Simulated assay, not measured.
Amino acid sequence: MLKLYSDHSLELEVQYTPGCVAWAASLTGGSVVPLPAGVSNASLNGCATVSISANGTTISAEVSMFPPLSESNAPIALTPIPSMDKELSFTDKGTPDVNDVPHVYSLDEGIYQVCVYFGKG
């Protein structure tokens, strides 16, 4: 999670050993932004720029402006998505089958929190 430590810009580089096919950036306001491996200079609501290596093992971010803090005190959370191979489907009751599907929550609290699922189909 990226938190406000000072009034200056923050540069961050993270190594993630297993690699992944994508990352997700969680923000407030119900936003979860998917970031595929290989993306370069992706903007996160104008407050950060993110790049990810082609193999998904390295993510770098430059944060120039912090949005209002949520109750978790973290305006941006970066989450690795190691696989999106699970086929998205519905149960026999007509509800989404989300077992073993990678998912990421927005940083909102209560009824304003959004969950995004990553899968095929």
Rank of each mutant, 00 (worst) to 15 (best):
V33R: 06
G56F: 04
T17C: 00
T28I: 06
V39P: 00
V114S: 12
I111F: 09
S83L: 04
S64R: 13
A61G: 05
T57P: 00
L107E: 10
D97Q: 08
S64G: 13
T91H: 05
N55A: 05
V116F: 06
N55Y: 01
A48F: 03
V114M: 13
G56V: 02
V104E: 07
N73T: 02
Y117R: 08
T57C: 09
D85M: 08
T95V: 09
V104A: 11
K3H: 02
Y5W: 01
S26W: 06
G38M: 07
C20M: 11
P18G: 03
V33W: 01
T58D: 01
T79V: 15
S72E: 11
P75N: 06
G29F: 07
P82Q: 12
P68Y: 01
P80Y: 04
Y112V: 00
P34A: 13
D108H: 09
V32E: 09
C20S: 12
L2K: 00
P96D: 01
K3A: 10
L69D: 13
S106V: 11
Y112F: 13
I52K: 04
I81P: 10
I59H: 00
Y117K: 05
T49E: 08
P80A: 15
T79D: 15
S53Y: 05
L78R: 08
V32F: 11
E62F: 02
A42V: 10
V104M: 12
P102T: 03
F90N: 08
T95N: 12
E109H: 10
S43T: 11
E71G: 11
I111V: 13
F66D: 03
V50E: 07
T17E: 14
I76F: 15
V33C: 05
D97I: 03
F90Y: 14
K120M: 11
N41I: 00
E87R: 14
S43E: 11
S9H: 08
H8G: 02
K93N: 09
I76P: 04
G94D: 02
S43L: 05
I76A: 07
S9G: 14
L4H: 01
A61E: 02
D108Y: 10
M84T: 15
F118M: 06
Y16E: 07
L35Q: 02
A77D: 10
G121C: 08
T49R: 06
S70Q: 11
K93Q: 13
D100H: 10
Q113K: 15
S40Y: 02
I76G: 06
M1T: 09
I111W: 02
E87Q: 15
T58W: 01
I76K: 04
I59K: 00
H8Y: 06
D100A: 14
Q113N: 13
V14L: 14
L12N: 06
V98N: 12
E62M: 01
Y105N: 15
G56D: 04
T91E: 07
E11R: 10
V21T: 11
V39L: 12
L44W: 03
S64D: 02
K93C: 00
G19S: 07
